[in-house]
Nucleic acid binder design. Structure first.
Lengths: 218, 218
DNA sequence: ACTCCTTTTTGAACGTGTTCAATCCATAGT
DNA sequence: ACTATGGATTGAACACGTTCAAAAAGGAGT
């Protein structure tokens, strides 16, 4: 039965993701998903704890696609600003079809109890995957970022990515033009800031910021 | 009838805020609020569009209390770091009783359609009030922040405040000890950064950041 | 073929936020 | 006093997410 069971689960995920994409979060009801998949309402709850759990599936799916699209573009020798631009623009591309869904997505993500919460324990794996993307960018970029912050940089950049995502949610311009413009400006700026962290004065501040973020992580 | 109508509204707000504080967001039901206030369920919807609308009332109430408590403490001649510490710590104090409620609060706030959304149009008034607090801090602090950024500083500080609030939501330590520690570290750091923005190299970056934030606002 | 146990599936039921036609009630105008 | 008007109030009804006891379907051992 294991194979058929897995098929039911897969069918539910596919159906749910399609309906999320086509109708948004609210109009996609648990009854609707079940009906479209040809199973009973209650059966969905055998495979998924809640509606939010299905959003978690969407989250993981997007994450995988983001990684698959961005990673091959992170080539050796390109400067950090360009690498960042690639990661962020790819992220916006992948999330694009779900933009109307965006706020609901955040809404689910924001609750600490949620599996999707980017800061929670449950999503640690997914977060790690995302940070790994930035780690790769840092590793292959030339010139190399200063050694002093190389270790903490991926996490800091990821935090910036979260901020951009927040901006994206509220961006109502067609095709999220404004978010793309923001990325084009912010990516080289961040890269320039990284370079500047070599200067003694700036370095002191950067060290303090890094220390702050570290201690905030407990 | 106008006076009695206002009384009903006030009674509902008071009841709802008390129940939010005592039982949290989910356990406080619209039926429960109506019953505790001695009116019918439907009547609540005559005065408030939705449950979230009642959260908006809570938001405004907290905002007013924050302002009332923080403003008198912003005295002339104190340095910016201390002023910031005062504002942020007072904010945590005011929100304290609602900490369990915090994530639900954010959840309501995050949706662009929501009245409470800190970035939305509806909450522009409330946001303005909050930013005014930082404007006051900037105005009375000695030494004065560099002229070049004085105008944009309140808004930037407010953004930092939003970040701290986000941290607060996820802070499970008793009495939000970790958030308070974060504030004690971050406030002087921010102040030091402001001072540093006088240096030509840093100033260039700061200008770019300010420009970025400005253009992001449309 | 039959039994026993586990995995999977069902659909009714509960409590929720919200809507709405109907009703009540206070007041102004006559 | 009577009535018309519009604000205030009601409570049943709807669709939703979720739960759960019960039924069905599978599979293993004999």
């Amino acid at each position: 039965m294991a194979v058929k069971s897995a098929a039911t689960r897969e069918l539910l995920v596919t159906t749910a993701l399609r309906m999320f994409r086509e109708q948004g979060y609210e109009k996609t009801t648990m009854r609707g998903i079940a009906a479209a998949a040809g199973v009973s309402t209650g059966n969905t709850y055998y495979y998924f704890e809640s509606k939010d759990d299905l959003v978690h599936e969407l989250y993981k799916s997007l994450q995988d696609e983001h990684r698959a699209r961005a990673l091959p573009q992170l080539r050796d020798g390109i400067n950090l600003g360009e690498q960042l631009r690639t990661i962020l623009q790819t992220g916006v591309d992948v999330m694009g079809p779900y933009h109307d869904f965006g706020s609901n997505f955040l809404q689910v993500a924001i609750k600490p109890s949620s599996k999707v919460s980017p800061f929670g324990d449950e999503a640690a794996v997914a977060r790690g995957k995302s940070i790994a993307l930035f780690k790769q960018a840092v590793t292959v970029s030339r010139p190399q970022p200063p050694y002093a912050i190389r270790e903490d940089l991926p996490e800091l950049l990821w935090l910036g990515y979260m901020a951009v995502t927040l901006f994206w949610v509220y961006d109502r311009s067609p095709n999220q033009r404004r978010t793309r413009a923001l990325i084009n400006n912010a990516a080289p700026l961040a890269a320039r800031l990284v370079i500047l962290s070599r200067l003694p004065v700036v370095r002191k501040i950067v060290e303090d910021v890094v220390h702050l973020v570290r201690s905030a992580k407990q």
